[in-house]
């Protein structure tokens, strides 16, 4: 039993954090496209969420490589991939190349229509199946990797919103004192911290076991914890958080979209119960 990250893993998270904070986006330059271990993927995607990076990263870095067995993973450097798993993942996020899963068969796919996500930074497309790329692909594991990395991203989004809101509560003054001195605000933020802190081990636990029950439990907990973080963040920021000028909106909208991406909380609760 050793249920903590290694120093290499925490160092890697810190490097990713600095990289993304500096506004850089070419994750392949850090070797992120070669990461396949689920725990390492969680480390990566927590930082992806922490910086609200948009685009088909779950698909390009975790799901498609698992489906293709790494063969085509690094095919065209910098090219993004996306994939739909109807009915659970009915649409794909806009990318350079598309796939569609039908049972255990992987198809090439072409976009037929653009769809509007609740998060405008997520550009979605409907797909129409094309030629078969491979049969007997590990679709179930690839789906679970999508759910797992989505959970990690939600965890990072939640953390980012807690940090933003804590900073705001320390600096914004009303009635002659920082609003973070009011107990109503303190308790809101304490609840956000508790939710995230207890969701986090579920994500890493699921990365270790990679069974569907644990992956679904992680998705349920991170969806709730991150969305709670978003609502409290908006409430504590007040009107400024409701503006398109403030960065909070980016995090909030992405959280709302990812909450139901890769299976809704209700679908994942059903999957947990079925496995018990």
């Amino acid at each position: 039993m050793m249920f903590t990250l290694s120093s290499e893993q925490t160092d890697f998270a810190a490097v990713l954090h600095d990289f993304l904070r500096a506004g850089k986006t070419d994750l392949a330059s850090l070797g992120v496209d070669e990461v396949t271990d689920p725990v390492d993927l969680v480390v990566v995607f927590e930082e992806v969420g922490h910086h609200a990076v948009a685009g088909p990263l779950i698909e390009s870095l975790a799901v498609v490589p698992a489906l293709m067995g790494g063969v085509a993973a690094g095919a065209a450097a910098g090219a993004t991939h996306s994939v739909a798993f109807p009915p659970l993942v009915p649409h794909a996020v806009e990318a350079d190349r598309y796939f569609l899963i039908d049972g255990d068969t992987l198809h090439e796919a072409t976009p037929t229509a653009e769809l509007e996500s609740v998060d405008p930074s997520r550009r979605l497309v409907d797909l129409s199946p094309g030629p078969i790329v491979a049969t007997d692909v590990p679709a179930a594991r690839a789906f679970d990797l999508g759910v797992l990395t989505c959970s990690a991203q939600l965890l990072g989004l939640g953390r980012a919103m807690l940090e933003l809101t804590t900073t705001h509560a320390k600096t914004r003054a009303q009635f002659g004192k920082p609003i973070g001195q009011f107990q109503a605000v303190k308790h809101h933020l304490a609840n956000v911290l508790i939710g995230l802190e207890l969701a986090r081990p579920l994500v890493f636990g699921a990365a270790v076991t990679m069974n569907s029950r644990d992956v679904s439990a992680a998705k349920v907990a991170t969806s709730d914890a991150a969305w709670q973080a978003a609502r409290i963040a908006l409430q504590v920021h007040g009107a400024i958080g409701y503006t398109a000028e403030h960065e909070l909106g980016r995090f909030l909208l992405q959280t709302r979209a990812l909450r139901t991406a890769w299976g809704s909380p209700s679908m994942h609760r059903a999957r947990v119960l079925e496995a018990l």
Partner: peptide, 22 residues
């Protein structure tokens, strides 16, 4: 149903959190 599942998930979360604290 949701409350039952959430209770199980919550207990599992606390268990894993404790393993992390070892």
């Amino acid at each position: 149903r949701d409350r039952v599942v959430d209770a199980w998930i919550g207990a599992q979360a606390y268990r894993l959190h404790t393993f992390g604290a070892l």
